[in-house]
Design a protein around this nucleic acid. Structure first.
Lengths: 142, 142
DNA sequence: CAACAGTTTAGAATTATTATAATGTAGATT
DNA sequence: AATCTACATTATAATAATTCTAAACTGTTG
């Protein structure tokens, strides 16, 4: 359970100071078996539950953005009201359950390789990501 | 140029009253050869330039959302800061140019059919959309 | 362990969006 | 065409989300 040394090193590696807030956030986000998705709101709740002292909202924003910039987190935007962060930072696809607002990772095998025929001159492709929106079968449409 | 009658009818068809603001918005959005993408901000600017009288911000929001709900517009969310509306409401794919913040529609032929292998029990697929992020070839990465 | 640079913090400021309540207007009714 | 009614528009206020600020604090370096 004391993998904090790893986090301290990891943070150093990307040039972020291992302050106690950042280490705590690493624990909350990465000390788990599976990667997962969260909103800023979710994270604030999780942190304030797990910590004895309170953490400032500004710090959560700053730290999440620092993590994102350094490639520790990836933003997945569903619509203007729903923006998630993903601890799985690889390029990968998602299902979005419109009933439960749940974002679900796809494995490599879930979606065949996407073949892009179009080529925009002078531009290179940075990423190709698919969002599959699903909803309950009975209560038709959204 | 006087296709307004069409707009009035179209609005009536989906149960929206053809008020002058709505008709004006239809003109600005749909009186063009190609479909296009815009933010609320873009639209407010376009409208205030094209109209003699000013239009309330609240009206723009209400009307855009009314159009979206009725299937006249489609929202495309790039990240938490960039949300576009698309006058092309069919399910289709996009390129996003990270240099210019420009959203570009894909034709059917640009991307091969996506094959989804995963099946979520009790859920049906509502849409499958691909976002291809591109950026300048020389100035590497973002 | 002193000094510095980067970090956290609370609260203020900013921005984007939505709600409110008064006024206006489209479309139906006469 | 005058009137009526329900829905729209408007300016403004309210709310929500995010960022800024400046002071206090804390890792890190030497």
């Amino acid at each position: 359970m004391k993998k904090n040394c790893n986090f301290i090193e990891k943070l150093r590696e990307v040039g972020l100071r291992p302050t106690k807030q950042r280490v705590k956030m690493c624990e909350v986000l990465y000390n788990r078996v599976k990667t997962f998705h969260f909103t800023i709101n979710d994270l604030v709740k999780m942190l304030s539950e797990e910590m004895n002292q309170k953490i400032s909202l500004a710090t959560v924003y700053n730290t999440v953005h620092a993590f994102e910039k350094k490639g520790y987190l990836k933003e997945i935007s569903i619509d203007s009201h729903r923006s998630y962060f993903d601890t799985n930072t690889s390029v990968h696809h998602h299902f979005f359950d419109e009933d439960t607002n749940e974002l679900i990772d796809c494995d490599e095998s879930d979606i065949d390789k996407i073949n892009i025929r179009k080529n925009i001159i002078g531009k290179k492709i940075n990423s190709v990501e698919v969002l599959v929106r699903v909803a309950s079968d009975n209560q038709n449409q959204k």
